[in-house]
Computed example of a mutant assay.
Amino acid sequence: MANWNDPQPRQGFGASPIDGRTAGKVGYDQGLRKHMLSIYNTMASGVLLTGIVAMLFASSGLAVQVLSTPLRWVLMLAPLGFVMAMSFGLNRMKTSTLQMLYWGFAVVMGLSLSSIFLVYTGSSIATTFFATAAAFAGLSLFGYTTKKDLSAFGTFLIMGLVGILVAMLVNIFLQSTVLQLAVSVLGVLIFAGLTAYDTQMLKHQYAQVRGTEFAGKAVIMGALNLYLDFINMFLFLLRFMGSRD
């Protein structure tokens, strides 16, 4: 039983209870930083791989040939297939298998996104990319450092995401420029919010996966979530900042 009448930490051999708690906190913080850094590095590497594949595929002339055939639907739907495979097979797959699928996803996303180089100028794509990167860094930092619980905010954002997906499907038939503009504005705002929300959720998740076999998988899936936030925010923002050829 603790001696509440003795305010001084015990001295002698070994660390005091206070020192032990401090050491545990320092160890946890160091582990959290390492965990989040692994997520950011994996996410950034995936984005870089996607960009390289997209540029090479577009500059080679293959993008024009392939995207003008029914194979374009394969390229458009392939990334979704990878995401579904990773999500539903998460518990059964080994970490190495999940990682391989992540890199495969980044490659097929590059093939799919090569179409933007056929529509927008290279300079406007680069400008939008760096603007997205700056916004992503600030929003993710906010999500990591804020003391406010973003859980309820996240639920609202998910509902908004479903809404814009429905609106995009409807606009395929309506071809409304006003609705397209509204969807683009909401898309940027929603994925900006999701960046902060997902970052906070990944930070809190560390306490659950710390020291478990799932930690490696959590890094990959966390990188996938942030990757999707970044790419979608970039694509919606490109509709405003992109200059067409």
Rank of each mutant, 00 (worst) to 15 (best):
A2D: 15
N3M: 11
D6C: 06
Q8D: 10
G14E: 08
R21H: 11
R21I: 12
R21C: 05
D29N: 14
D29T: 12
Y40V: 03
Y40K: 03
L48V: 00
G51K: 01
A58L: 08
A58Y: 07
V64E: 14
Q65T: 09
V66G: 12
P70E: 12
P70Y: 14
L77N: 03
P79L: 07
L80I: 14
G81M: 10
F82C: 15
M84E: 12
M84L: 15
M84F: 15
F88W: 08
R92W: 04
T95C: 12
T97M: 11
M100S: 14
A106E: 00
A106F: 00
V108Q: 10
V108W: 08
I116W: 00
F117D: 01
L118W: 05
Y120V: 01
T121S: 15
S123C: 04
S124L: 08
S124K: 11
S124W: 08
I125G: 01
F129Y: 15
F136Q: 06
A137D: 05
T146F: 05
A152P: 03
T155S: 04
L157E: 00
L157W: 00
I158S: 13
I164T: 05
I164Y: 05
L165A: 13
L165C: 13
V166T: 12
I172L: 14
V183N: 09
S184W: 04
S184P: 06
G187M: 01
A192P: 02
L202K: 04
L202W: 03
A207N: 11
R210W: 04
T212P: 07
F214D: 14
F214S: 13
A215W: 01
K217E: 03
V219S: 03
V219P: 00
G222Q: 03
L224G: 05
I231M: 09
F234K: 02
L235I: 04
L235C: 02
F236K: 06
F240I: 12
